[in-house]
Design a protein around this nucleic acid. Structure first.
Lengths: 337, 337
DNA sequence: CTGAAAGCGCTTACAG
DNA sequence: CTGAAAGCGCTTACAG
């Protein structure tokens, strides 16, 4: 069987506590003793047992990442958040328990109550998220990626979708556009509490009104051919529109082909601005100017804050609600009129 | 603090072992005693501590899922495997530790040696995979998704890419095509040991030769505009080709738009067959007939076998190398000549 | 600078 | 049908 700390102690001729202190560095050890112990560790291939350590210290060095894949959502967008969370967690010495149960609230209860994780990262948070209740019962701190009505007790990070909308409307207004179409995520996303839908939309309306622009909103779809139908409807009902704002992953991914098929040239016939990340744009070869959604940055900030709250709750202070300013990437898909 | 088994025992007026046996069901307990204990469990909100349980039983009910995101690979394809692995693991009572360290071999060593996981799922396995060495040292069983030169000691599951190629060539041959183009994954994928590249290609060649068909192979790219260049080259160098076989995620995802732009109609001007999963086809709205890569099935089979090997090594028998027959989904993108 | 011992919260032979 | 006790492999006050 695998070597234990006792085996190492015996081989090095010291007590188990001394081995433990060499491992943790929590007390001064003489050079010779340390060397003997380190040699024994290497020799025996000793690695501390994680369960034993967790039991003794009451922490696991594991973070829980909870996410669900909605049947009606566009899956490829999700992965962008998983990787930076994982990478940042490791950079801080944490591993990641990835939980995708259908009953996420139950899974949160189960994994936090059994002390499998030191902290929780909740992805794709909705406005009245049912997963927050079990999270409030948990002993572990949590960070939300997304925006909830009541995030009391949790740090939360999200893109500033209001600002994203304003940036786009400003950009189009400056370029002389007076009639805009906005494709939003499908209605069921808003119904489910995806607040980015209305935060973006309301800000776009407000800004358009300020400039006296006409803004038409059409809910997109997440599946073919609903995507194309929504676009057809939007464009044929508003032949005067000169710019299309797309706040919908599935639609923007399908857009290049759609426009090619309809013979609509960008930006000559129509200006296009999207909301998506650098990487998403790359995966789908999207040639559109975009407000960038920065999943890397959100993931990193969220995990870093969570780790701070785990390791030094005092220093972490009161919970934060942080809205990140989007990036902007001009790919030349908007025309000056 | 959280309730322990001792608190439950005290509340129910029994010993800790009796509580434990109620939990595990490993011995008969009188109805009254059980009821009292169950009431106490609910009352105190008791959930066993996972670390303590792992220490006592030497198993964690956690599987490790190890994967890396190559800079030059097409990320959206990866997620398809993660979800079925996660779902199947939960169905068997296991949680998932998702590990994405750059140094995966080191991460495998670390997580297996510290006994954080009961078993290992390795994704995207290459022909001479450097992660197999640390896996051989591990006490835990492992399952490979992919195909390695020497998978001794591990169960492994992969799509039968040879059969996939034969299915496609047969299909095109039956429909009268005599000159075919095959777009493969980029060279670096094969260089890295992605054996599906040559298993597919060699079988395609062999089959084409049998029928006396002409088959031209062109390595695709994973990024825009290399994707388009490869397609341009392939099509202009072989104007007589009537069918395109695409064994490359990034290329097939970009293909609808590419063909639209070039004014090439499918299947009138060109027949197209791809290799991709149902879900991938859906995400990218791909209108092409395809041999299906069945990530759901592979993930499920792999995890089920891994769990069997963990729980009942005798019954699991000798390690398996299993190549799964692909699905076939005719979307009408091939023409009879 | 180092050791002996208690304790973390479970499970499971051993006894009755 | 149930209990007392040992043990899993660590960490960390307590002592010297």
């Amino acid at each position: 069987m695998a070597a234990t700390i006792g085996d190492v102690a015996r081989a090095a001729g010291v007590s188990r506590s001394t081995v433990s202190y060499v491992l943790s560095g929590k007390r001064a050890i003489s050079a010779e003793t340390r060397e003997r112990i380190e040699a024994a560790i290497v020799e025996l291939g000793f690695t501390p047992n994680a369960g034993a350590r967790a039991l003794a210290t009451a922490h696991t060095s594991v973070l829980g990442l909870y996410l669900q894949f909605q049947e009606d959502e566009f899956a490829p967008a999700m992965l962008q958040y998983v990787l930076p969370v994982s990478t940042t967690a490791r950079a801080h010495g944490y591993d990641l328990l990835m939980v995708t149960d259908t009953d996420l609230a139950g899974a949160i209860r189960r994994t936090t109550a059994s002390h499998m994780v030191d902290g929780v990262v909740l992805l794709d948070v909705t406005y009245d998220d049912s997963r927050l209740a079990p999270l409030r019962e948990a002993r572990q701190p949590a960070v939300l990626i997304g925006y909830a009505r009541d995030s009391a007790g949790f740090d939360s990070y999200d893109l500033d979708f209001g600002e994203a909308a304003r940036m786009i409307v400003d950009h189009l207004s400056e370029r002389g556009h007076r009639e805009l179409i906005l494709i939003t995520p499908p209605d069921h996303v808003a119904d489910r509490g995806g607040s980015y839908v209305w935060r973006f939309r309301d800000a776009a309306f407000e800004r358009a009104a300020r400039y006296g622009l006409r803004l038409t909103v059409v809910a997109g779809d997440s599946r073919h051919p609903g995507i194309e139908h929504a676009l057809d409807r939007a464009l044929s009902d508003h032949p005067g529109a000169t710019a299309l704002i797309v706040h919908n992953d599935a639609t923007i991914a399908a857009l290049p082909r759609y426009l090619d098929e309809r013979g609509i040239r960008v930006p000559q016939d129509l200006s296009v601005v999207g909301v998506f990340s650098q990487e998403f744009g790359q995966s789908f070869s999207l040639p559109y100017t975009a407000v960038e959604s920065l999943p890397d940055r959100l993931g990193e900030l969220a995990v870093t804050q969570l780790v701070r709250r785990i390791t030094d709750p005092e220093a972490a202070g009161a919970p934060i609600v942080r809205l990140i300013e989007p990036g902007f990437s001009d790919r030349g898909s908007t025309r000056a009129l």
